[in-house]
């Protein structure tokens, strides 16, 4: 019953997402596309923090490396003829490599030590992007693919500037990567990682190679984050060191906490709230960050489990009233 309700609501969201662009303005579609990309990024972060209990302050590295790798592919592999799908693949794989590399370096660290080691590593990558002007364009970043088209087999050619097409394109990858991430959490490895979150010490004494499991989640998280970075440059038509900046890492963290970092759906809900909150507050005032900050603090104080926690509580109350309170 509860399972059916879950699948029904997921189906409803997917259907809505497919139909919405038919009634929304171009600007709204653009915003929702951004929400979807942040959702992918947020889910990749959930795998580390919410699912495995690994706190990273350097998640922007996976996102940014994926973004730069995709951008460089678009510019250098075959010039204007570079297939968009190839660039996305390169971006995702670069994010994956970055995840693997981070994992190898910080494997034995936990808690705040892990957080600061990942922060330091990501800032190093940011510095490379900032300084290596010949490759990355320094603080100007890279552009030059705004006029590209995507050729979709059987469907036809679409310009990247076509907002509606971009939306569906990104949505397709979101469904794919989020479903894959969901599946990942349900495999024996996903189960092991959840066990590591609770008691990694005992996991080791059950004969589980805890470091290998952690390395695998870093790698997989990097893959998904890298994919989101590649999609983001197609939407923004540019890449800059800001993609790698620690403020981007903290955006991901804030998105996770707002939505509920311990829940798979949390970052998706958080991405929605964050993008719209920033968009509307910044249209009223330049000091929007103050208001976002206040909202963040209030939520932390009163609903530490985020919006997903609030929804969860409400659902439990409903099922309790209807006499199905047993978990």
């Amino acid at each position: 019953m509860k399972q059916n309700l879950k699948y029904a609501s997921i189906l409803l969201v997917v259907l809505l997402a497919i139909l919405l662009p038919l009634v929304m303005s171009k600007f709204q579609i653009y915003l929702v596309t951004q929400v979807i990309i942040y959702s992918i990024l947020g889910v990749s972060y959930y795998l580390l923090l919410g699912h495995t209990g690994l706190l990273s302050f350097g998640h922007a590295a996976f996102f940014g490396v994926g973004a730069y790798a995709a951008a460089l592919s678009l510019l250098h592999i075959a010039g204007p003829d570079t297939p968009i799908l190839l660039a996305i693949l390169v971006g995702a794989l670069a994010g994956m490599l970055c995840g693997l590399l981070f994992g190898l370096i910080v494997l034995r660290l936990t808690k705040i030590y892990l957080a600061f080691a990942t922060l330091a590593l990501s800032q190093m990558i940011w510095a490379v992007a900032w300084k290596w002007r010949d490759l990355t364009g320094g603080d100007d970043g890279l552009t030059g693919w705004a006029a590209r088209t995507v050729s979709m087999p059987l469907i036809g050619q679409f310009a990247l500037t076509n907002v509606t097409f971009s939306y569906y394109f990104v949505f397709f990858f979101a469904v794919l990567s989020i479903a894959l991430s969901w599946h990942f959490t349900k495999t024996p490895l996903g189960n092991t990682l959840a066990g590591i979150k609770v008691n990694s010490h005992r996991m080791g004494f059950l004969g589980v190679n805890v470091n290998k499991a952690k390395l695998m989640v870093f790698t997989f998280s990097g893959l998904i984050a890298g994919l989101s970075g590649a999609l983001f440059i197609l939407m923004k038509k540019m890449v800059s060191p800001h993609f790698l900046d620690m403020s981007t890492s903290f955006d991901v963290l804030i998105i996770s906490v707002i939505g509920g970092y311990a829940s798979f759906m949390g970052p998706i809900i958080g991405a929605f709230i964050y993008v719209y909150l920033v968009e509307y507050l910044s249209s009223f005032t330049e000091r929007w960050q103050l208001l976002v900050g206040a909202f963040f603090v209030l939520l932390l104080l009163f609903y530490p489990k985020g919006v997903a926690g609030i929804i969860g509580n409400a659902l439990r109350k409903v099922s309790f009233v209807s006499g199905k309170g047993k978990r």
Partner: peptide
């Protein structure tokens, strides 16, 4: 020996 297997679902 399944602890880090990630293809099939555990369920």
């Amino acid at each position: 020996g399944l602890a880090v297997k990630c293809i099939r679902r555990l369920a």
